Simulated scan of single mutants.
Amino acid sequence: MKILTITGLGPGDPSLLTLAAVDAIQESTVVSYPVSTRGGDSLAEKIASKWITKDKKKLPLHFPMVKDQSTLKSAWRVAGNELMKMVEKGERVVFLAQGDISLFSTGSYLSKELEKHHPECLVKLIPGVTSFSAAAAKSKLPLAFQEEQLLVLPVPSSSEELKVMLSDAALKKRVVVLLKLGKNWEWVKPLLEELDLIKQSVFAERIGFSDQKILRASELSSGTRPYFSLLLIRQSWPFIMP
């Protein structure tokens, strides 16, 4: 049977890899991972480097950071074909993806590509720790209690849209996770100040890496932040608490 494994690596800290992810890497003969530029470095490879021993073949695959549909589809097709070449040779192949494979992940596109064009291959998916769950643990801010709701989404495209969404979240006792904060922080911070939510928000940046940053959003200056940054916004707490 043709089998290929796609595994999440967590947000960046090698110690947050699951046992299943480590086993998949150790049992593989080929380790594949995404690169945004040809010949460039891979964060995924770096995170898992402890378990990528010299006897393993490496297969970097180019996934350009663009929005052009034809370019993206071509990259997915090439990646799927390259992986299948290895599988058909009898190699035990694992593809590495940052974070969780089901959340804004290259692994998701790759899984669907293989499902569509190589249905004869069994794709095994191994989940990973998300950046926001790691940030919640580091900051000791629970994501949800009892009947509370949790909303996870990229920063909306406009301040008005975010304002409406936060107002609705307050009514429904919904904790909000805003991903892909980056340059949006320039207008998100003033909005949080306007809504008096700045002190109730936790900012996290590059979680799991040596230069990670976690602090109250009120302590963070204005300006652009890195791509790997997020906000946790809790507007209320349950009536019954310890």
Rank of each mutant, 00 (worst) to 15 (best):
S15Q: 14
S15V: 10
L16E: 10
L17N: 12
L17M: 15
T18S: 14
A20L: 14
A24K: 04
A24G: 04
A24S: 10
I25T: 03
I25N: 05
I25D: 02
Q26N: 14
Q26E: 14
Q26P: 00
E27W: 07
S28C: 03
S28K: 02
S32V: 01
S32L: 06
P34R: 02
P34D: 05
V35Q: 02
V35H: 01
S36Y: 06
T37L: 13
R38M: 11
R38N: 03
D41L: 09
A44Y: 07
A44I: 07
E45D: 01
I47H: 12
K50W: 14
W51C: 10
D55G: 01
D55H: 03
K58W: 00
K58V: 00
L59V: 01
L59G: 00
L61D: 01
L61M: 04
H62R: 02
F63D: 06
F63K: 08
P64E: 08
P64I: 09
M65N: 06
M65D: 06
K67D: 13
Q69C: 08
S74L: 13
A75C: 11
A75F: 06
W76A: 12
R77K: 15
V78R: 12
V78M: 11
L83V: 05
M86R: 14
M86L: 10
M86V: 02
E88R: 12
E88F: 08
E88C: 04
K89I: 07
K89W: 08
E91P: 01
